[in-house]
């Protein structure tokens, strides 16, 4: 547990800010935040303090936008002009590589990518992806921050989807292809994966918790990056993401 109370500034998509904030709150880190959309799905708890720009004394700032790279760029500009030169910026690099993000900043050596993805943030490990510009000190500070939250880290190469979000979104895409082809019911697909191969959650119910739009954003970014038919989004998933419809299993 940190000796003096740390402050963290979170900016980005609602679900990611909420999950990241809850994880910090559990370790007594003070949360200041700003959301991309003013119309949040539900109110955040009172220990989340809204603030339009980060305080100069924030120990760490985190950018958590996967949905829109224009918004992400704006947020990173705001962070860069508001905080001291040495404060590390952690940024979700699931749909945009941290290397690309680093081209948006003047001082990209304090920028490092993290695997910010719904349902995974609150787990026991966070992936960290440095760009070629990231200073060793930035990686160390980011790792130490996650250690204070009781988490492990894994340093991975800067690639769209990183490790776990990529595997998970591809599993969900395959399950939705199976659903689209009507080979089994959503419930039976989930049951089969939990009992047949011991998955912690069925892929359909997992997609429901993540939000299909968030899954689609990663798959679209993977397809744009790797240009392989393998990463083609299931038409059903695409329709559900566009229609903002979730499954009810």
């Amino acid at each position: 547990m940190p000796s003096s109370r740390q402050s963290i500034y979170l900016i980005g998509d609602f679900m990611l800010v909420e999950e990241f904030g809850e994880m910090c709150h559990a370790k007594d880190v003070r949360i200041l935040y700003r959301l991309n959309s003013k119309n949040s799905q539900k109110p955040l708890p009172a220990y989340f303090k809204q603030q339009s720009s980060p305080p100069r004394n924030a120990s760490i700032v985190v950018e958590l936008t996967n949905s829109d790279s224009t918004v992400k760029k704006k947020n990173l500009h705001l962070l860069e002009k508001s905080i001291p030169r040495t404060t590390p910026i952690l940024s979700s690099s699931v749909t945009t590589t941290v290397t690309e993000q680093s081209t948006w900043l003047k001082h990209s050596d304090r920028l490092v990518g993290i695997s910010g993805f719904p349902t995974l943030i609150s787990q026991k490990l966070c992936e960290i992806a440095p760009s070629i510009h990231t200073k060793r000190e930035t990686i160390t500070k980011a790792s130490e921050f996650f250690f204070t939250l009781g988490k492990q880290v894994a340093i991975v190469q800067d690639r769209i989807g990183m490790v776990m979000p990529r595997i998970l979104c591809m599993l969900i895409n395959e399950a939705v292809f199976a659903l689209m082809e009507n080979i089994a019911s959503p419930r039976d697909i989930d049951t089969a994966m939990k009992l047949g191969t011991n998955y912690p959650s069925g892929p359909i119910e997992w997609a429901d918790r993540i939000g299909v739009k968030n899954v689609c954003d990663v798959l679209m970014a993977l397809q744009g990056d790797l240009h392989e038919e393998r990463y083609r989004i299931s038409p059903l998933l695409q329709v559900m993401a566009t229609g903002q419809q979730w499954w009810h299993t």
Partner: peptide, 22 residues
């Protein structure tokens, strides 16, 4: 991911277990 050199065998397994909950 292994073929693209994104992470090692050990790290991918560790990530999938601790970040994915598998």
């Amino acid at each position: 991911l292994l073929g693209e050199g994104v992470a090692s065998v050990e790290d991918i397994d560790r990530i999938v277990k601790l970040e994915g909950g598998f």
